[in-house]
Computed example of a mutant assay.
Amino acid sequence: MISYEYPLNERIRTLLRLEDLFRKVGHFNRSEAPQDHHVSLLTLFEILEVASRADLKVDLVQELERQRQTLMSYRNNPAISEEALAGALYEIEQASTGLLAMAGKIGQYLRENEWLMSIRSRAAIPGGACQFDLPSYHFWLNRDADARRRDLEGWVRPMTPIRDGLEIVLRLLRGSGRPEGQRARCGTYQLTMAGRAAQMVRVSVPHSEAVVPEISANKYALNIRFMLPETIARPRVAERDVQFELTFCSL
């Protein structure tokens, strides 16, 4: 199954974007190639841009506290594993502690690094990070791979509480829904929300279906059109019934 997630509010949209960016940084950091470390650094600049929302840290702390209170209510419940519950509570408390320990604006230490900001400004120009534009950056890219990796990890580390906090929130969000089998007749599916409270929709499609869902939603209705991937240049709805799973997720 291929899962497609569609956020229903700006907060979840921001968390999903940051999750994707942190995963890319982790992937490219593990490489030894200068080109991959270049991509990692540019992705870090994207994280800085997306995470600059003033209320992101507060949102995460409040949501983690709300989830902690919910889990606390399950104590001494014979149907709940005390060991698993204690582990989940510890993870939430550690993430909250890390977030609360973050002082000042998110990523301010990066903004105060003139060398990094010079790379950021040049990288915004197509081809602007070429060696003749940024000779000191070219020198850095030609350093030992381990030295570059240590620098990258040092620049990412202060923002790991954001990563850890959003991973917990999104994991709980994804686990809150129950998938239900649905059928899109002639490639189209519509559902009236009717006051349904959800923060994210997940659409899971079997690999064998070879279709791509286009999702739109508001507080009144959910609309899904399953498009044929081989006609991306000129999108066309799959004019056949499509089986899929639909999950409404809400914390």
Rank of each mutant, 00 (worst) to 15 (best):
Q131L: 08
R149N: 13
S121N: 15
P135C: 07
G154S: 12
L141G: 05
G127K: 00
R150E: 15
G154I: 14
S121R: 15
P135E: 08
I125C: 04
R150D: 13
G154Q: 11
Y137M: 09
F139L: 10
A123F: 00
R149L: 12
I119A: 01
H138F: 09
I125A: 06
G128A: 09
S118T: 12
D146S: 14
D133Q: 11
S118A: 15
D133H: 12
L152W: 08
E153N: 15
L141H: 06
A124K: 14
P126W: 04
A147Y: 13
L152D: 08
L152E: 00
S121A: 14
D146N: 09
G128Q: 07
S136D: 14
F132T: 13
M117K: 02
R149V: 05
C130P: 04
A124C: 05
A123H: 01
Y137H: 03
F139N: 06
F139S: 07
A145K: 09
F139W: 06
L134G: 03
L141N: 04
D146C: 09
R122Q: 15
R143T: 07
D144S: 08
Q131S: 15
A129N: 13
I119K: 00
W140G: 03
D146T: 14
A145R: 12
F139H: 11
E153A: 12
S118M: 12
M117Y: 02
A147W: 09
R150C: 11
F132V: 10
G127L: 02
R143Y: 04
R148E: 07
G127N: 00
Y137E: 06
D144E: 12
M117H: 02
A123V: 01
L152M: 11
L141W: 10
R148W: 08
L141M: 13
R122V: 00
R148H: 06
C130A: 15
D144M: 03
R150N: 12
R120C: 07
A123S: 13
L134N: 03
R120A: 06
R150P: 03
C130G: 13
R149A: 06
G127E: 02
A123Y: 00
G127W: 08
R120I: 00
C130T: 12
R148D: 08
D144H: 08
W140S: 03
P126F: 00
R120K: 13
A147L: 15
N142A: 06
A124N: 06
M117P: 04
I125K: 01
D146R: 14
D144T: 04
G154A: 13
D133R: 07
A124R: 07
G127P: 05
D144F: 06
M117I: 05
F132N: 10
L152S: 08
A124V: 02
A147H: 09
R120Y: 01
P135G: 05
L152T: 03
D151P: 04
E153I: 10
D144Q: 09
A124G: 00
D146A: 15
L152K: 05
L141E: 00
I125T: 14
S136N: 09
F139A: 10
I125Q: 04
L134I: 07
A147C: 11
L141S: 05
